[in-house]
Write a protein that binds this DNA or RNA. Structure first.
Length: 466
RNA sequence: GGUCCCAUCGUCUAACGGUUAGGACACUGGCCUCUCACGCCAGUAACAGGGGUUCGAAUCCCCUUGGGAUCACCA
């Protein structure tokens, strides 16, 4: 059996949205899982709405998601000869015909039908006229008036449509461009696509497409219509549901692996498992585990999953994703041991990369900005002698590991008969400027002896001055 | 309105005729503790309704209700 060939075929009429990303992901996962081929095709036959920036936005989003394609990108606008050749063939074989009815006439037909309670549909005026191509004419498909067309869908099961529901739909517009249903089928046929995975808002198109496959005497592909992604009000996601653009999630500080994990788990499941690495997704994804009901996009769960991925990713691997956020914070961080240390202390406390960069601020701030209230409360005369005792012993230290530090703290705690908390908070304020931070020992190790001592000195000077 | 699809905790979902209906997010307690997190433990919470089929139904069938999608010379 030939290997699987899937495709993602977005129309470039805006940024890549969440639903589109999931469609792309499922196609990609299925191809990767089966060792098949994933093809990218840009459906830009709508000359009015398609834009070049949209094309770039789609590439940009796919690149971020690390969804790569094996063939393409193909542009429908560059394949007109292919569509026209198929049009000629269908007309020659009697499956399609030229039609000179004007949009006004069509509208009149619809009005009339609506008035009498019939379906608004093309009445077949030109169907048997044997017209040839002329200015302003379109090509229509000669649809069967009776019988049924059944869609055998791997996720939905069989769906039966009565052919009388269909009319002689347009295959080629008067401007010479093919319509979606026609171009999609011709492309899928010529690109040898054998598995079509797409949103279930396409099921109503499928019988028309099947009819075209039949007219072309081409075997049908496997259809898999995956359920929709809805907003929190259960309607199709749109801007009023918050961010719908994939890159908006990148800009919020999501990890691409967390995002695809989340997307995959909406509509697809693998027992009780929630967390998947990219490799696991590829290994475990199969179409038969795709569910049939629509799901609501839950940004809170996405955030939780992102936190899990941040925790599970090595500081080294996190770095390239984090750097842009550090830059945005005005932090000139390098991909080095210091940064990796910083990241390690922040992983358990960051839900997004943006948060992480903000929390990393104090490590790089020289001098560190003291929070007014925190300094008021903890950098007191009482704390001064503790900090001084600590500084003295710290400066005498040869190695600056957590064990060495703990020993010093125990000494000080013993000498002053105090608990760790008594010294930790003033020290925390001295080192970070605030009362909230990673563990005090972790911070010190990452900062290193010199920075720690310098910050202690500055805090002590601050106390003496107040 | 026509056509089509869908229906388990608030949300994402598991269950493939027999379970105290499981997990995750969120929420609420508690533990851990140098702050904040993390982690751990515990708890609240669902089979839309009604008929069948069956010894037995969340699972199969029908109806109702609810939700969604789609009805172009857009894709």
């Amino acid at each position: 059996m030939a290997s699987v060939r899937t495709r993602f075929a977005p129309s470039p009429t805006g940024y890549l949205h969440v639903g589109g990303a999931r469609t792309a992901l499922f196609n990609w996962l299925h191809a990767r899982h089966t060792g098949g081929c994933f093809i990218l095709r840009i459906e830009d036959t709508d000359q009015v709405r398609s834009t070049e920036p949209s094309v770039q936005a789609i590439f940009d989003a796919l690149r971020w998601l690390e969804i790569d394609w094996d063939e393409g990108p193909f542009f429908q606008s560059q394949r007109l000869d292919i569509y026209n050749a198929h049009i000629d063939r269908l007309v020659a074989e009697g499956h399609a015909y030229h039609c000179t009815c004007t949009p006004e006439q069509i509208e009149a037909m619809r009005e009339k039908a609506r008035a009498t309670g019939d379906k608004p549909r093309y009445d077949g005026t030109c169907r048997e006229k044997g017209l040839s191509a002329g200015p302003g004419s379109v090509v229509r498909f000669k649809a069967p008036a009776t019988g049924t067309t059944v869609v055998e869908d791997v996720v939905k099961g069989n769906i039966v449509f009565a052919n009388e529901e269909l009319d002689d739909f347009v295959l080629r517009r008067s401007d010479g461009m093919p319509t979606y249903n026609f171009a999609a089928v011709v492309d899928d046929v010529t690109m040898r696509i054998d598995t079509i995975i797409r949103g279930d808002d396409h099921v109503m198109n499928t019988p028309k497409q099947i009819l075209i496959y039949n007219a072309l005497s081409h075997p049908l592909p496997v259809f898999a219509h995956v359920p929709m992604v809805l907003g929190n009000d259960r309607t199709r996601m749109s801007k009023r549901h918050g961010a719908t653009s994939v890159t908006a999630y990148r800009d919020m500080g999501l990890l691409p692996d967390a995002f695809i994990n989340f997307l995959a788990r909406m509509g697809w499941s693998y027992g009780d498992q929630e967390f998947f690495t990219r490799a696991e997704l590829i290994e475990k994804f199969t179409l038969d585990r795709v569910g049939k009901s629509a799901g609501i996009f839950d940004p809170v769960k996405l955030g939780a999953l992102n936190a899990d991925h941040i925790k599970a990713t090595s500081p080294q691997a996190l770095t390239r994703h984090l750097l842009p956020f550090m830059q945005a914070q005005g932090i000139a961080a390098q991909d080095d041991a210091f940064l990796h240390g910083v990241i390690a202390t922040l992983q358990a406390r960051s839900k997004t990369l943006d948060e992480m960069a903000r929390q990393a601020h104090f490590y790089y701030a020289e001098p560190v900005a003291l929070d007014e209230a925190a300094a008021q409360k903890f950098l007191t005369a009482e704390a001064l002698e503790l900090l001084r005792a600590l500084a003295e012993r710290l400066s005498a230290l040869g190695s600056f590991g957590e064990k060495d530090l703990e020993a010093v703290f125990l000494e000080v705690m013993e000498a002053f008969k105090i608990k760790l908390g008594k010294i930790a908070q003033p020290l925390r304020v001295a080192l970070t400027g605030t009362t909230v931070s990673p563990g005090i020992f972790e911070i010190m190790v990452v900062l290193g002896k010199d920075r720690v001592l310098a910050r202690l000195e500055r805090a002590m000077a601050y106390i003496e001055k107040r």
